[in-house]
Simulated scan of single mutants.
Amino acid sequence: MKKIGIFFGTDTGTTRLIAKKLMTRVGEEFCAKPLNVNRITADDFMAYQALIIGTPSYGEGALPSAELGVKNGSWEDFLPQLETLDMSGKTIAIYGLGNQVKYGDRFVSAMRHLYRFFKDRGATIVGDWSTEGYEFTGSDAIIDGRFLGLAVDNKNQAMLTEARLDQWAEQIREPLKQSAGISETEAA
């Protein structure tokens, strides 16, 4: 079994595409195939000590859900399965998709919901990201002047996405490998 899980919530496929690109960049030899949270169980999620999770922001910065029009459900529908579980020992990197022009007052705000959920259950969150180079007026996904994870705007800054993915994958790779117990010999 691969040691780093990648899970996403999406209805349009862009969050899935970013998950696949991150799998390649972090290391296909370590990362499991990215899966939509509407297709997994709590046991599937809990099987990993190291995870990359992604979400777009809906409405006023909400997580995607069946209630908000996601056909087969998403994060908001899946998280209740994990509410009573201890996430201590897990290391999680979060990425979020948004549109900083059209929704600049709540850019990638849904990341904050995932951050709080997993942090409150004991997980270590890695992969905070600079707000430099973005043009938005507000976001709930910022602590101490930095995004809680990678912010992706494929609508207005698609030309920057690949470089951002490269840099972020480099940043999160070692903490995730360490949490997953990937040895130097496995990494070689």
Rank of each mutant, 00 (worst) to 15 (best):
A158N: 15
M111T: 11
I125C: 03
D128E: 11
I172G: 01
F8R: 00
I53D: 01
A47R: 15
D86H: 14
V108G: 00
G145A: 15
N156W: 07
R39W: 10
G127T: 03
K102G: 14
T137A: 08
G5H: 02
P80N: 07
L63H: 06
D144G: 05
E174S: 11
A180W: 11
G138I: 02
Y95I: 03
W168Y: 07
S88W: 12
T10I: 12
S74F: 10
E83Y: 09
K33G: 00
G149S: 09
G61V: 03
I18G: 00
A19W: 12
E76L: 15
A66Y: 12
L79N: 10
T41Q: 04
T137I: 05
S88P: 01
A110C: 09
Q167V: 08
Q81H: 09
L79M: 10
G145Y: 07
K90L: 13
I143H: 08
S88T: 13
P56C: 14
I52Y: 00
I142Q: 01
A50F: 01
E28H: 05
W129C: 13
K155C: 12
V37D: 04
W129F: 10
A93P: 04
A19Q: 05
V126M: 04
A66R: 14
G59H: 06
G133T: 14
G149E: 11
E162H: 10
T131S: 08
K119I: 13
K119P: 04
T124A: 11
G127L: 02
E83R: 11
